[in-house]
Computed example of a mutant assay.
Amino acid sequence: MIKKMFLAVLVAGVFATSCSNDDDGTVTSRLNISLDGLENLGNDFVYEGWIIVDGNPVSTGVFTVDDNGNLSETSFSILKETLDAATNFVLTIEPAVDPDPAPAETKLLIGDFSGDSANVSSAGIVADFASVSGNYILATPTDEDDTNESSGVWFLDNSSGSAVAGLDLPTLSAGWKYEGWVVFDGTPVSTGTFLDPAMADDNAATSPFKGSVGNGPGYPGEDYVMGTATGVTFPTDLKGKTVVISVEPSPDNSAAPFTLKPLAHVVPDNAADHTVISMGTGPVTILTGTVTR
């Protein structure tokens, strides 16, 4: 069973379908993909397409994407009988050297064939991001200095007088995690990865930026009160900076945010410390595409 897993991604172009007879008499068809918005995965990972035939995945081939978003391959030769029987198309992220012939858990796009084409989307397989929303506060609870409260961000809502989860996010399919970020002068610095927005993130106890007074609230977030990153010396002021929630492959291919970003918000210049700030609703980015046979 295949699990259904900043700015909407548009897809353009449909390629012509063709068939050919190979030297051994087998008949092949072309599977053609038109996908925009995919990012370069680096040297260690590749994209792999799959068609689902009688409930089983059949690889259609791997490809890479350059820094300009250009796919190394857009057309793949498949046995016509197999391709004609396909009911779905799935795109995964795979290790470049992959010892496992089965699809990875990191499934990025899925779509059902209707006739000779399938409209594919990340919303149908990563998660349903149609109604996400977020809140956060500026505060630095991990140190005893009350003069730098605008140098920390915590994804919680304290408007009732008691802290509750500030992020309303769907459960992700296997192979994915959420990650928070603050963008400093164009360079993102992570606040940590997490699965549950009502619990502390994965780096709560290991962050090099937090102070020495505990790990902070039991929610995702970060105090930027020690050290440096991207040329910024902490503590600093997060007003005017962009706060982002992304969806990351797990294992992750990059130290930068992945292309799926359900939430993003610029911290207001007049933001008050310890006061809930709304990120509004998402999604900012959903990947879509077209596959034809």
Results as ranks from 00 to 15, higher is better:
residue 231 G to M: 14
residue 66 D to G: 05
residue 61 G to C: 13
residue 35 L to P: 08
residue 60 T to P: 07
residue 152 G to Q: 14
residue 274 H to L: 08
residue 199 M to R: 09
residue 97 V to L: 06
residue 19 C to L: 14
residue 225 V to I: 02
residue 262 P to R: 00
residue 23 D to S: 03
residue 201 D to S: 06
residue 37 G to C: 13
residue 205 A to E: 03
residue 57 P to E: 01
residue 289 G to P: 10
residue 189 V to W: 08
residue 60 T to Y: 13
residue 251 P to I: 07
residue 288 T to L: 05
residue 196 D to C: 11
residue 32 N to A: 10
residue 165 A to R: 01
residue 80 K to R: 08
residue 208 P to G: 04
residue 178 Y to T: 13
residue 159 S to G: 07
residue 290 T to A: 11
residue 206 T to M: 02
residue 167 L to H: 01
residue 199 M to W: 10
residue 257 P to Q: 11
residue 162 S to F: 06
residue 150 S to H: 15
residue 227 G to T: 04
residue 163 A to T: 00
residue 154 W to R: 01
residue 291 V to Y: 12
residue 170 P to L: 04
residue 52 I to L: 06
residue 137 I to V: 04
residue 287 L to Y: 09
residue 16 A to M: 09
residue 98 D to L: 05
residue 57 P to H: 01
residue 33 I to K: 00
residue 162 S to E: 05
residue 163 A to V: 00
residue 151 S to V: 04
residue 71 L to Y: 12
residue 93 I to M: 09
residue 66 D to Q: 03
residue 149 E to A: 07
residue 269 D to V: 12
residue 141 P to K: 07
residue 190 S to Y: 11
residue 143 D to E: 05
residue 259 T to Q: 15
residue 291 V to P: 08
residue 178 Y to G: 06
residue 133 S to L: 00
residue 94 E to W: 09
residue 288 T to N: 08
residue 263 L to A: 15
residue 120 V to K: 08
residue 119 N to A: 14
residue 88 N to Y: 13
residue 168 D to P: 00
residue 7 L to I: 14
residue 266 V to R: 14
residue 262 P to S: 13
residue 222 E to N: 14
residue 61 G to Y: 10
residue 29 S to F: 04
residue 94 E to T: 11
residue 261 K to W: 10
residue 176 W to D: 03
residue 216 G to R: 01
residue 272 A to C: 04
residue 237 D to Q: 09
residue 48 E to K: 10
residue 164 V to G: 00
residue 223 D to M: 01
residue 58 V to E: 05
